[in-house]
Design a protein around this nucleic acid. Sequence first.
DNA 1: GTCTATATCCAGATAGAC
DNA 2: GTCTATCTGGATATAGAC
Lengths: 203, 203
Amino acid sequence: MSPRNKILNEEIKDARREQILSNALKLFARRGLAATKITDISTASNISQGLLYHYYKSKEEIFVELLHDAYDKMIAAVLALERLPLSPLEKIRMAIEKLLQGFAENKETAYYYLLINQASIFEAIPDEAKEIVKSRSLLHEVITRIIIAGQKDGTFKKYDAQDMAVVFWASLNGLAIYNAVQGENFRAPDANILIGMFTEKSK
Amino acid sequence: MSPRNKILNEEIKDARREQILSNALKLFARRGLAATKITDISTASNISQGLLYHYYKSKEEIFVELLHDAYDKMIAAVLALERLPLSPLEKIRMAIEKLLQGFAENKETAYYYLLINQASIFEAIPDEAKEIVKSRSLLHEVITRIIIAGQKDGTFKKYDAQDMAVVFWASLNGLAIYNAVQGENFRAPDANILIGMFTEKSK
DNA sequence: GTCTATATCCAGATAGAC
DNA sequence: GTCTATCTGGATATAGAC
């Protein structure tokens, strides 16, 4: 094969994988790993199911790759947030607003949340997925640090910072699910409601 | 068959159904409907899988019955709460505390939440289940009423009451999931954190 | 009412042709 | 790289014996 064609093939391959991943993400999110058939993914991607095995050796492998992506993106986003030259309160506000906005604008963010939820809740997922889920604690840690900073500078309430981080993530998680359920009807609630958990005065 | 034996058989039958339901609830919650095999349920219930078909004609039927139970209990609880001779703030506080406490003490409450979540999120569930989920709006309505009352008496913040109800349910839902994931390690966060969303002063 | 054995079906995975 | 055809396994559901 000519080098020219080789490069072309690589591009096709990458494009296909992208295509498969994107379709699988939506299917996994809305049907669950177990209920999503390999033919569902291939059909949605307009390829035969035989071909799918050329790119991934099982649907579990696809699931794990997507889960990796999900965590990579979330952790990167949260770490970037932490480094911004903003006050703790502004960081929290930005996290909430960006996320709610993301839910409303593109479904992908919410789908990733649903994926992570499945991986967290369900026992019947690949061991590798279970491992990834454990890195969840990193997300908690970053938010906890921001909260502690906000308590130090006097803007945040003085409840246990770990507890506050737990409630923070649980709430956003719950909203991601609510968004997924509502679909097109989703309207992001006022971010100030959530911020009220952190600060004494809401304005 | 003697009337005596007939009654006895009825009791056995009821006991069996209870047994099956209780085991299925846990399995559905932790594995999902699709990933739960009919033999998982029969094995957990110490009966042959053939016998299970004597009581239910499919696992979907079991799922739907459990979902019915879940909503019946939640709606009953919320309506009872609304009727209590308490201030809106006290009602909200009680709802949060009772629920967090329930999560920590018996798993059943949290399992029901997980079941409802599945039914809400996943497309691949029985039509009958989809119907039941629509009654979810009733839960929102009751809480919205309580919130409006709290705004009228001046104790609650004046954000859109619907939004506040959405965030309220989403947060509790997120905490239910968090509880399920944590299992034995779950420690209920301070209820005042959540209450801070509603009131200006936290004490 | 309860079990074991069996039939049916469908999803996952492979093989081989183009 | 892509498809169609096929094999295999496992889960659902039924039948029949006790």
